[in-house]
């Protein structure tokens, strides 16, 4: 399948009854076949963005182009049923009066080719044996797969997923997510997942869009964003973050934890982000004189790793140590900075 490219430019959405726009100035591009995730807290406008892409909401400004075709723009609003965009709803929205096969076949012409497409998808999501069931007779994971198959059946160029895993329990979620990613990869559709779960977003996406208060704060490869967030918001959205002030000069900065390396060049007063795994603890007596001394406040054993909160110089930071790390609350240790710190923008 030739997946199309999605270009969103300056998108603005207003909902009835709200004075301020819910989505403002959102711009991003998804390459053909791209698998992206839109991450943000509830109420940030991510679902509204998705619904506007699908055509359920009207864009108040900006432009949406899919495979060279303008779906929304000044004076243009292609209705949802003419967009050819697949959508998986948070509540799945399966048709309760139709069987599994009829649900999946809903958007497919009743031809031999259509029936074949339904059969293939049912096989793909491993629901072959349940085609005659009604949605009410399925488990949550099965329902989720029906919803995915239904959205994929018409062969959409773009697939939108609105928190489709949120109703699943944690143990099931990873497997379903992997399966979904696998199925989508086989169809080759350009995909955008909306979620508030960073683990889900990073596990699913090749491109990550972090959204805050109706705007995209930062976009890029999930690993890159995790390593080098540009704002405090993105830094905390993607994982635990130790935020500390420093005085930068080139690729290093002086901080309360000593001199640390920087991800990029900076000068003057900066705010830095150090991930807990970029820090390590060492026995206090064997350490260099220049190393910071800290006192262990709390310890959370996680099997493969142990998360410590340590205090030194009035500053509390989190440290991710190996599972067998020996320190107990009250112990004194040396704090070693192993990785480079991300330099955050000066604004909030």
């Amino acid at each position: 399948m030739n997946a199309p490219e999605l270009i969103v430019d300056g998108l603005e959405v207003r909902l009835p009854g709200a004075s301020a726009p819910v989505v403002e100035g959102v711009a991003f591009t998804l390459a053909p076949g791209e698998r992206a995730a839109l991450l943000g807290p509830s109420g940030c406008g991510k679902t509204t963005t998705l619904r506007t892409l699908a055509g359920f909401e009207r864009a108040a400004g900006g432009r949406i182009t899919l495979g060279g075709r303008v779906l929304a723009g000044p004076g243009i609003h292609v209705p949802a049923h003419r967009r050819g965009i697949g959508y998986v709803f948070q509540d799945l929205a399966l048709f309760p009066h139709l069987t599994v096969a009829d649900n999946v076949g809903f958007g497919v012409p009743r031809t031999a080719a259509g029936r074949r497409a339904v059969d293939e998808l049912l096989a793909l999501v491993e629901l072959d044996g349940l085609r005659g069931r009604l949605p009410g007779q399925l488990s949550g994971g099965q329902q989720q797969r029906v919803a995915l198959a239904r959205a994929l059946a018409p062969g959409p160029g773009l697939l939108l997923l609105d928190e489709p895993f949120s109703s699943l329990d944690a143990t099931l979620r990873d497997a379903v997510l992997a399966h979904t990613r696998d199925v989508i990869a086989r169809t080759g559709a350009t995909t955008l997942l909306v979620t508030h779960d960073r683990g889900e977003a990073m596990a699913f996406a090749r491109q990550l869009l972090v959204m805050r208060a109706g705007r995209i704060e930062q976009a890029g490869d999930p690993g890159e964003l995790y390593r080098a967030p540009r704002t405090r918001f993105v830094a905390t959205a993607l994982g635990a973050a130790n935020l500390l002030a420093g005085e930068a000069a080139g690729r290093s900065a002086r901080t309360a934890l000593g001199v640390v390396d920087l991800e990029r060049e900076a000068d003057g007063a900066v705010e830095l982000c150090l991930r807990p795994e970029a820090l390590a603890l060492a026995p206090a007596d064997g350490a260099d004189a220049g190393t910071a001394r800290v006192r262990v406040v709390t310890r959370a054993f996680r099997g493969a790793s142990t998360l410590y909160a340590v205090e030194g110089d009035g500053l509390t930071v989190e440290v991710l140590a190996p599972g067998d790390a020996p320190w107990r609350p009250g112990d004194t240790a040396a704090l070693i900075v192993r990785g480079a710190a991300a330099v955050l923008a000066a604004t909030p």
Binding site: R51, A80, H81, G86, L94, G107
Partner: peptide
């Protein structure tokens, strides 16, 4: 009736009329 069902039908390429006859009316 959940509005999602109508949206689901629309996203599957069904015009409003088909949404009415195949989803809304039966339900």
């Amino acid at each position: 009736l959940s509005p999602r069902l109508g949206e689901a039908a629309a996203s599957l390429g069904r015009a409003p009329l088909a949404v009415a006859t195949r989803v809304a009316l039966p339900l």
